[in-house]
């Protein structure tokens, strides 16, 4: 029955661990690799609700204690299998909705959109613990209203400890997730996303990837180590609702807020609702300049 406790496995999820104990990486020694290769991983976003309908089962009373345990085990496996099947089906349907964009994303690679961070990509021979492992997974809403990026970041234990991985309390020396949300796309951007315009898509994905790599570097070089405070509610406007993020504000620019949420993940919230924010920001800067 304890097996029924678990949520079906998803690879876009990381449990936060920080066993660096203050030994942050020196900026000049910072190097990372894309853990799953250079290919862009773009998926349709889908509801994570895996609740299945109730499955009433009559347990046979005369089967004894072992029989009861067996019957409960079978019932549990049925429910778990239903939940995993639902998740897989939802992912498949969501991918079909953005298939044009998925095809377009195959025309460029992660290194093409890493920007300034391309110089931090590890080259040559290196041990797994000497680099930061980065796995970006992009998501597109099935109504083409926005994009998001979940970047999983982790550091392996040194080899000696890695062999004892099963005995360690934490699977990694450091592991976390950075979730970057784009602004709600304008009508023109939606059309481009829907039709699979690779140049426009590349620009959107590049902006999100660079933001997540900026945050990974800031975190692992110790720039966020003193961030503390009481959790507050932040909001993320989506096309049909207002999503709640609980956490502590880590950084604020004129384009976005970086919030460390209850999972200790970094969540990037765009400040405006459309891509005109950049202009507003520039305008605000020019006004400040003229006031001064």
């Amino acid at each position: 029955m304890m097996g029924c406790q678990s949520t079906p496995y998803r690879d876009d999820y990381a449990k936060h661990t920080n066993q660096l104990r203050g030994n942050y990486i020196q900026p000049d020694q910072y190097q990372f690799k894309f853990a799953a290769g250079k290919e862009i991983d773009l998926r349709g976003a889908y509801s994570s609700n895996t609740d299945t309908a109730a499955t009433p089962v009559m347990y046979h009373g005369g089967a004894g204690l072992v029989g009861l345990a067996l019957q409960v085990g079978i019932h549990s496996a049925m429910v778990q299998s239903g939940r995993e099947g639902q998740l897989s089906e939802q992912q498949q349907q969501a991918n079909e909705s953005i298939s044009a964009a998925i095809n377009a994303s195959k025309s460029f690679s992660l290194t093409d959109i890493a920007g300034d961070h391309a110089s931090d990509i590890a080259e040559g021979d290196f041990t797994p613990e000497s680099v930061i492992h980065v796995k970006p997974i992009f998501f597109g809403q099935t109504d083409h209203s926005k994009l998001s990026l979940k970047t999983l970041v982790w550091i392996e234990w040194p080899e000696k400890l890695r062999k004892k991985k099963k005995k360690l309390k934490h699977a990694y020396l450091y592991s976390n997730l950075i979730h970057v949300h784009s602004n709600l796309l304008s009508e023109e951007q939606r059309q481009q996303f829907q039709s699979g315009d690779s140049d426009a898509l590349k620009q959107q994905l590049q902006s999100m990837l660079q933001t997540s790599l900026d945050i990974a570097k800031a975190e692992l070089t110790g720039q966020y180590k003193d961030i503390k405070g009481a959790s507050k509610t932040f909001f993320l406007k989506e096309s049909d609702n207002k999503k709640v993020i609980r956490g502590v504000l880590v950084e604020e620019t004129c384009n976005h807020q970086v919030v460390k949420n209850l999972h200790q993940w970094f969540v990037v919230l765009p400040k405006g609702q459309t891509s005109t924010v950049g202009n507003e920001c520039a305008l605000a800067h020019s006004q400040v300049g003229s006031d001064a």
């Binding site: 895996t50 609740d51 499955t55 009433p56 347990y59």
Partner: peptide, 13 residues
């Protein structure tokens, strides 16, 4: 949290 007797139908919400 929804159950079918002993078995949870999903996660707590």
């Amino acid at each position: 949290r929804s159950f079918s007797n002993y078995i949870p139908n999903g996660d707590p919400q």
